[in-house]
Design a protein around this nucleic acid. Structure first.
Lengths: 205, 205, 205, 205
DNA sequence: AATGAATGAGCATTCATTCAT
DNA sequence: TATGAATGAATGCTCATTCAT
């Protein structure tokens, strides 16, 4: 629960709230029109503020996009770490990661669109993206796989990093398909379907 | 070898060659700067022609991007169909698809960048993309999985379409990582690593 | 004299003033170079503003041209109606119209050039022009002629509309010649010369 | 009857015929789209020739416009002079001029549009226009009026040049109205209506 | 902090003109 | 003569960013 200060305002300052509003507005606008086709004026309008106000909270339109990613990714990683720390078995940890991944994006379609589509709109961003939170995320998966190999749960003739990429790629594709799909269906349940194959393979024994 | 006609000109018309040159130039430029940051003048300059000449072959900058995708995708699907028609066993067909996927993109980094990064720069394009060649590709994989299930090679407790998406997602992720990697390594060999896990799963038996 | 409000600003808003400045600048520029040869940058420069500012007040270059006409025409018609309402005799009313016509255009050469030359640069515009204020103007003349016929001042064997066109055409030609003339002379006095012939004809009795 | 040369071709050379075709095409295209909105390619296409061919007969697009005017105007003046030389009475001469004016333009709507609308699209052209054939035309009218004054047919208290402008302006307005009119009616008969007023005035005696 | 009018760099596209064939 | 592919200068309009209020 947010602490309140003497004046009765939330400790979460106005600054933070307006910053928040701009980010939410930007996610919505970027999701609908795409980053390059979105105008700063669109974001401001959606956020109910003046155009210039955006620049009191962000240096540029590009920084807005980066901030969307940075905030979401660090929140997600923080939550992920917390959750798996409570779990012992590597395969259960992997399951939790997959579930979180799809739950998070499946619960906010606009955010998912920005993640799947807009954040990839430039190699430049992809590389920064890669360097930042994304590789940390991939590393968590990799580490979990490695732990599973040491614990004898996972085959040791496979490279953990490749394994991690495969899982990530599979989940990522689920999200992308979900976004582009004309039908509406819950994303989270796909986690189990992915894991059945990821864990057991497609071949008959 | 191009046939020559009586007048000694290449049978491949000048029209085709210049169109080709523009597409090659555009792939290069888009790969380096991104679609939205690329100017038509950049493409023309790279192709060694005047700005206006681009418009003798394409209606707009956007049509250039679409043409890149259309041509590559139809070529790829055609080749893929031809190749797998020569193969009987479903698991070998899947292997061939995975290999072709990575060979094709691994042999032309610029094209790969455009495919992985630029073609996803807009939901709009993604949806057309999805509707067109891409879903045909995914369907080929799905059908092959289904055939494998009927032949008893693949488990029948998994949905073919989910399975196809997982394979596609895994391969796609290999390409994306390869593109963004600072190190230089051959992409095609990743196919076997992916398939080992895709076929057998990550769990110990 | 402009009224001032409490804060000391002119009651005529800044918006109106800048719009006004753009129109004045456009009249000048169009008069010198012609509509099609005038760049938006020329207008902005003449008005002492940035190029983009033009688009804060007008949707397009074409709208600037239309606005010039619309404003001038409605002002002129309003003034004309007011003036002739104070006059009883049809022939005096006709005289007032002719005088106003030449006084107005004769007092602002740039505006006259735009009216005589630029507004006719396209059939499309001419037709809108015709449909809008121009035909209203012609109708006022026609009505006055008709009134004159009823009052017995004008011959009744002539069609009022033809008569109105003749007067308009004669005045119009005076303006065009005045604009194109290398010599500089006052335009307004031509009204009497035109009317002497219009009223009495060229034939000896 | 056109003379034929040895090879059986019309003496009117191919050169002349193609030039002619381009001019006819240009009149049509200019009339429909306006000079500035017409492309040289439109003219070429209408004339059934290649774009570049236009430049074998004319130095520029502008020269095509000038040529339309020059040819039509000199033909008209030549015919006008010939016709009035056969007429003795000044008022009959004036009548013939007015009739020719409206017959000529009334028999070729496209040409009329170009004359009334396009030729006035620029002050620059108007001034050349004025300097060239137009002022010669006006001068013929003026001279005829002057002759009429000497012969006692026309009032001597009016300036011949003003009188000429009035007649020209009146006729010109008839043409402009005819072009812009939604209804279709013959133009030539308007000559008599104009002259009745021009000769006799609008006032009752 | 907030505003939103003003800025002006930037760019896709057009089209008159050229010239190799 | 005729062609029409190629040229490249030219420009209307957009929109991220600034800054006076």
């Amino acid at each position: 629960m947010p602490r309140t200060n003497r004046s009765g305002q939330s400790a979460r300052s106005v600054v933070t709230d307006k910053r928040e509003a701009i980010l939410r507005a930007a996610i919505k606008v970027f999701a609908v029109k795409g980053y390059f086709n979105s105008k700063v004026a669109d974001i401001a309008s959606e956020a109910g503020i003046a155009d210039g106000t955006v620049y009191l909270y962000f240096k540029s339109k590009e920084e807005v996009l980066h901030s969307i990613f940075d905030r979401a990714m660090s929140e997600f990683i923080e939550e992920g770490k917390r959750e798996i720390s409570l779990i012992a078995a590597p395969e259960d940890r992997i399951r939790k990661i997959a579930q979180l991944h799809l739950e998070k994006l499946g619960s906010d379609r606009d955010m998912a669109v920005v993640f799947q589509v807009e954040l990839r709109g430039s190699t430049k961003f992809m590389q920064e993206f890669s360097a930042a939170g994304f590789s940390e995320y991939l590393d968590i998966i990799r580490q979990t796989i490695e732990d599973g190999q040491k614990a004898g749960a996972f085959r040791s003739d496979i490279k953990p990093i490749v394994c991690a990429k495969i899982l990530y790629g599979a989940l990522d594709e689920m999200v992308t398909n979900w976004i582009l799909s004309k039908r509406s269906y819950p994303l989270a349940p796909m986690a189990d379907e992915v894991l059945r194959i990821f864990f057991g393979g497609v071949m008959t024994v």
